[in-house]
Amino acid sequence: STVKVRLGHLEVTLHNVSEEDVRELRELWKNGADEEDLRRWLEEWKK
């Protein structure tokens, strides 16, 4: 499914993403990950 995730002022649209992935991303964000960390996660996730 396609999910729009809003993290601060960063809005990311993920395609074919699982609930688990979204949860993981939100956890990262809650734990103080900055945009760099999130971008890195997204790069990994896209592979």
Rank of each mutant, 00 (worst) to 15 (best):
D21S: 12
R39K: 13
G8Q: 04
W29G: 11
E24Q: 15
E44H: 12
V17F: 05
D21L: 11
L25D: 00
E44T: 06
T2K: 08
D37V: 14
V17M: 11
V3S: 02
N16T: 02
V3H: 03
H15P: 03
L42T: 02
H15Y: 09
S1M: 15
L28T: 01
V3G: 01
W41D: 00
T2P: 05
S18H: 07
L14V: 05
G32S: 05
L7G: 01
R26I: 15
K46R: 13
D34N: 13
W45M: 09
R6N: 08
W29V: 15
E27F: 03
R26W: 14
L42P: 00
W29Y: 15
L28F: 05
R39P: 01
H9S: 14
D21G: 11
V3Y: 01
K4C: 10
A33Y: 07
E24I: 15
E11F: 05
R23H: 12
K4W: 00
D37M: 14
K47T: 09
E43T: 05
W29K: 13
S1R: 13
R39N: 08
A33L: 06
E24D: 12
K30Y: 12
W41Q: 01
K4M: 04
E19L: 09
V3P: 01
L38E: 00
L10T: 13
N31M: 06
H9V: 12
S18K: 09
L28C: 04
T2L: 08
L7M: 11
L7D: 01
R6T: 13
G8R: 06
K30R: 13
E27D: 12
R40K: 13
V17P: 06
S18E: 05
D34Y: 07
E36C: 09
K4L: 04
E19Y: 07
H15V: 09
R6W: 06
L38W: 04
E11R: 06
G8D: 04
W41P: 00
E19D: 13
D34S: 15
E43D: 14
D37H: 11
E11L: 11
D37W: 05
E20Y: 04
E24P: 02
L38F: 11
R40F: 06
G32V: 03
V12F: 11
V17W: 04
E11S: 11
E11G: 03
E36M: 11
L42V: 13
R40L: 11
K4R: 13
E36L: 10
K46P: 05
L25K: 00
W29E: 15
T13V: 14
L14P: 00
T2H: 09
A33R: 02
L42A: 02
W29P: 02
V5R: 00
D21I: 09
H9W: 10
L14K: 00
L7C: 06
R23C: 09
R6I: 13
S18W: 03
A33D: 03
K30E: 15
R40V: 09
E19T: 09
V22R: 07
E35F: 10
D37P: 03
D34R: 10
E19F: 09
N31E: 13
L42Q: 01
V22K: 07
N16A: 06
L14Q: 00
N31Q: 12
W45L: 10
L38H: 00
K46Y: 15
G32Y: 05
G32T: 03
V5T: 01
E43W: 03
D34M: 09
E35H: 07
E43S: 05
N16G: 12
V5N: 00
L7H: 02
K47S: 11
D21T: 09
K4G: 02
E27L: 05
A33K: 03
K47F: 05
E35S: 08
L42M: 07
K4Y: 02
L7S: 02
W45Y: 12
G8N: 05
R39S: 07
N31H: 09
E44D: 14
E43G: 03
A33M: 09
L14W: 01
K47A: 11
S1K: 13
L25W: 03
E27V: 02
E43M: 05
D37F: 07
K30S: 13
